[in-house]
Amino acid sequence: MNLALYKAMMKSHSKLLITYSCSVFLYLYLLVMTFPMFAESQQLNDVLKGLPESVQVAFGIQGNLSNVNDYMAMNFYNSLYLYILMAYAILTAIQLVSRFVDRGSMAYLLSSPVSRVQVINTQAMVLITGLFVVNLFTYFGGYLGVLSFTDKNGFDMSIFTQMNLIVMLIFLVISAYSFLFSCLFNEEKLAMGASFGITILFYSLDLASKLSEEIDWLKYFTIFSLYQPQKISQGDYNVLSTSMILSIVAIVLFILSASLFKRRDLTL
């Protein structure tokens, strides 16, 4: 980790980070504003309940719209937020290494006395910081929304925190394997293709496993099956051990990235 590099990277990354953070903050905050309206509308709840069970499971809408935790999970965490984080995690991971190698500016970073491993670790820290900040803004957006627009009675802070933590750690792993590709490929396009390809594959496997009982074993092959806001809210999700496993996987992937990058021939 090199402080000068970290500061410079954070500075040039800041515009993107601020855009993402403000967007998720505002979106979730305003989403909660619409909660009281829906909570009172029994009609919509009935429509949702009328959908086939498997569709409800697949799209994470089997919850209760009159609970604000479920409301946020269904309307944001289970949909738009996943796509936003996918885009942010992958694009940032690719930008931080692969783009520098592809465009040649890595030559400058590596011509300094900062070692390859230190450069990569610094870039990884920038990625982790960014992911943390986006998640933090989401967390506060939701929390402030609840404080401003609801009567707080149905809101469970601890479950909301756990849900945010698990989402962040899942995306930490997604960032980490994208970062690994970023460190391995010479071409930005290739690294990006691999990262998006695998992530979308994981996502489809998760959807498929939920839609049909017969292929529900697919859930063992996708990271998204760990993301179950319903289970978290019902309290039968092992938050502690899942967080530990996700963190360890992410750390291993980051270490692997640095050590493979160190051994590579770079055409700079």
Partner: peptide, 17 residues
Amino acid sequence: FVEGMSAVDFLNLMSGM
């Protein structure tokens, strides 16, 4: 050069590293 930087930022980065 590293994208999105001014010349002085770039020189500061190199000096820092």
